[in-house]
Design a protein around this nucleic acid. Structure first.
Lengths: 209, 209, 209, 209
DNA sequence: GATGAATGAGGATTCATTCAT
DNA sequence: GATGAATGAATCCTCATTCAT
């Protein structure tokens, strides 16, 4: 379509640049408003207006309001996944280190993406199953690890992998949800430390079931 | 007014009985419909009609739709609290037994109150802060226990009580939510076992923090 | 019905006394609430409860809410008419004195029946034509006087009696309405004086038509 | 945006024209329906449908039903004020002529804006304080004149300006209300004549206070 | 006569989405 | 591509009134 341009692959003409810029502004504004006032209390036209375009334009870029919501989440999740993958590049010396690293990535991400966390737990996200998808995705990833752990003999066999995965996801997300709503009550380090210990060996001293 | 009746304090006249019965039917029907179709997709008049009364009657017994929702939850939570208190009457020999008993009560409760669990996690409950109240209540109770555990030296001091409490609540509720939605994937015993182990010592063998 | 009583005409049995007392309390309470919160914002059950009876009882005494409203007004208007008739017993020496006396009765009545005035001008009274009836009644009375005045040659013939009557009624009622809402701004004497002058010869000095 | 157009300031594009036209139709239809059936008995959707648009469109142009009512009144009142100001441009030779001119403007306006008068006295207008505002506005204007008259010595000092102003407003509005409801009973000229005389010197011959 | 639980019609308002310009 | 006026389905809640007890 832009084939007239001699270097079409690299250079974008003004229209394309403007379109991309508009889309970016909608995502940004949506993130901001959804996080601040809640998804249900943010009108599609609010986002459009705040982004400096007409409502109709929003619908040119996204199928519907939920489409915008999903796109915002997708971007955020992709970033999180990227962080998790980067973490995986430098393998941990032992499972304990791996769990700590994993926890740290999540907590740091929540710390720097408060708005995204608020949206993730927004009732509307839940209602439209947007956040369930993410929860299930994380649970599936963890379930895999638990199964590996069991196979490697480092996780006790009495554990049901699916249940455990959902338990850990619940623990992580609930804490992150609570923490982003009450950031002053605990430091990031404290949250990381506590979650890591809980994930590794529960709260009890020299614990064995 | 009922003074003719020899046992006026216990006996209710027909009108009172009818009122109480109507209220009970509304609570029951509300639980059923809210759980099945979701709170937002259940009209106030749906509940009333299904309960065999007119809409106005619902508003005679409850302030509004949310009032009905809260009442349903309150009844359920009171029942759960009762079960937890009964459990507390026969003190566990050791912390591990206490955690197992606590977990068992929750899982059994979820098993026999599926509808209530579905409502607790309904987006509308979340949106109206009905479920947040319950989450925070549970977290507060657990926080107390964690603090006691630290004082008694059975919980490692590196743990932040508030974070840990929210973590455990998140773990429990997420698993119960998932399990009541997918009851066939794990047995109650397996869920109890896994949650108990996770709460006690995490998933790992001979764990060390 | 009470014929068993030897002096049925004078003595009322307990039931009758109670019924009359209940009716009186409903009228009193209705006047109070209607005046304070407005007719539309006062529920039938509000009045009943405040009067210490059940809603149903209100409907035993009055056909409906409007019936209560009418009864309250009727009592007030009868009282006003009584005052006007008493005034008519001692005929004024001249038309000017008559007008002044008439005005004074109205203003004094408004002063001591603020609640009734508020109800008279309540939108709901207007809507249900309750106050229009009164307005028209007053206008009809005044129209008669104007016609007499024309016949007696003391009122100029260019005046249309119906128009004049409505004009004077409007003047009186608007002032009373305003004054009962803002009682501090003018004294009763000042209101009487001003209205009397306006009714007699308009505001202007040594007036000439 | 319309910069291509040689006379952009005056010319409106099709969309703007359509919006203004829609608004005008809503105002017109609202005036018609409110006057005919009363404000309370006219549904918002009635107005919209009769105006050939959907309900939502009404709420696009006006905050709510009352907003439409206020807009209708505002337009009418502005027109009346314009007429009164035009009248003030050619000053009357004497106070009597001024009063007559003022009265005439009001009566002629009522004659040609019957619907607006009906709405002004609609209980719903009263209830929402829409008409009180107008009454008070007129009273404030008249009060000013009375004060001037007193200062100029042409109005007798015994008159309280606020009371007199409300009295005259009440007289004028009550007559106009009655007359627009019963237009056949008196001619416009007769109404003007009677009101003028009443305002100037009261109904009595060679009157003395 | 008194009670008060039950009735149920009725209407304003919102906001995601469309489509003619 | 961008615009933004128009759409209209959808639902909550009130409260005057009744009538079985």
């Amino acid at each position: 379509m832009n084939s007239i341009h001699p270097n079409a692959a690299l250079a974008l003409n003004a229209r394309d640049r403007s379109r991309i810029e508009t889309r970016r502004r909608l995502l940004e504004t949506g993130l901001e408003l959804f996080a601040r006032q809640g998804v249900a209390d943010t009108r599609a036209s609010d986002v459009a207006t705040a982004a400096g375009v007409a409502v109709g334009t929003l619908y040119l870029h996204f199928k519907d309001k939920q489409g915008l919501l999903r796109a915002i989440m997708r971007e955020g999740v992709e970033e999180l996944m990227g962080a998790l993958q980067r973490m995986a590049l430098s393998p941990a010396p032992d499972p304990a280190a791996a769990v700590r690293a994993h926890t740290e990535v999540l907590v740091r991400f929540a710390e720097s993406h408060t708005g995204l966390c608020r949206i993730l737990f927004d009732p509307e996200s839940v209602r439209k199953n947007v956040s369930t998808e993410i929860t299930e995705h994380l649970a599936a990833m963890l379930e895999l690890r638990v199964r590996e752990g069991i196979a490697d003999g480092i996780i006790v066999p009495g554990i049901d992998p699916v249940v455990a995965a959902h338990g850990v996801v619940g623990m992580l997300l609930q804490v992150l949800d609570w923490w982003t709503r009450n950031p002053g009550i605990a430091t990031a380090d404290s949250v990381i430390e506590t979650l890591t210990r809980l994930r590794l060996s529960g709260p009890y001293q020299g614990s064995e079931a």
